[in-house]
Design a protein around this nucleic acid. Sequence first.
DNA 1: AAAAACAATCTGAGTAGTCAGTCAGTATTT
DNA 2: AAATACTGACTGACTACTCAGATTGTTTTT
Lengths: 206, 206
Amino acid sequence: MIRERKKKRSGPTRKEAILEMATVFFAEKGFRNTAIGDIARNIGVADGTVFYHYRTKEDLFVAVLENFKEELIRESRDYLAAGEFADGLEMVVGLIGFYLSLAARMEERFLLLHRHYPYQLAEANPACRRHLEDIYDFFASTYEQAIRRGQEDGSIRELPAHKTALIIFTMVDGLVRIGTYRLYQPGSLYDELVASCRRMLQPDKV
Amino acid sequence: MIRERKKKRSGPTRKEAILEMATVFFAEKGFRNTAIGDIARNIGVADGTVFYHYRTKEDLFVAVLENFKEELIRESRDYLAAGEFADGLEMVVGLIGFYLSLAARMEERFLLLHRHYPYQLAEANPACRRHLEDIYDFFASTYEQAIRRGQEDGSIRELPAHKTALIIFTMVDGLVRIGTYRLYQPGSLYDELVASCRRMLQPDKV
DNA sequence: AAAAACAATCTGAGTAGTCAGTCAGTATTT
DNA sequence: AAATACTGACTGACTACTCAGATTGTTTTT
């Protein structure tokens, strides 16, 4: 079989192609409903090739999760580095908008986090658990920093920063989930969500 | 085989036993990871018996969901009928507490709603979709009623009742989910959640 | 430069296992 | 006798993973 050279920068390597295709399938159909053969066939590769690069299906899943985590965190860091926020409260609002835009842009991949499988796997697989914790810790601590900043500059009232961060993150992530389920049309909730958070965080008027 | 009589009130019928055991397995292990044989073996019944009462595995799942929906709504109605609330805001707070206690009491069954499978099935299976919509509509509209009542009695400010109801429900349900995943210890978030909601809903002090 | 040796990558038929659903026949109830 | 409830061996389809051998890429030797 004639195969394109691959080390010489001609697109993704096969290992990368497998990871990408696996991401699509795991997100869209779930772990159990994805056959290794689905992935292999879709990139024109033999089943065995998948197992050459990833020891087991589970390993492949964890690699997909790790890859997604890294992209998530990288993009978020970029946003935070570029963004200038008037105060802590505006930073919280900015983060909410960013998370929602990220979820819209990576809609398919976010499904990975909104399925039950990874959390189940996390109980038996420490690597999986670590990736999930990394993701949640990253966002929770980012919200927390914004809240503390707001408390210093007076845009946010005194309240437990960590707990409040978790509550806001839960809220925003829940909104994304509702959108995915298509039980409600979600888009219109954004403005109200931001307004609710402002009321929740702002100091009482004096 | 000697079999206990069943129509004569000696415990659940076999059909009911199958439904119960299926609930446990679908909730705990998911649809795809539950084999009909698991259910049958655990109640000492042949595989064929399950298919005698439920045409397919999918039908059985929808029956489980319907059953859960009915219990959820029945219990909630009982709570609402019994509860006396000082005003609309206290009713919202009461509902939050009730939902969390329900989720704790039916922890296993709530997993049914926190898996992705039912929402995926809903896209192809109208009965499944209807049950999910019934559940979400019920809770959303209950919160909405409480908010409207609060707006009449002055305990809640002017805000879009329906959207706010969805936001609060999302928040509370998200809290339950976080608890299930065991990534954070959730219990301690309850007080802060209620405090956040009060701030979100209360009129500005004048 | 060609050949040979070595290493890395890939292949796909094969294995062993699982499981939803069927059905012909048996047991129980009415 | 008829209807209903139940059985469990069987079928057909699927699938994770293996492995012996093929192909390709790189390095060393001649």
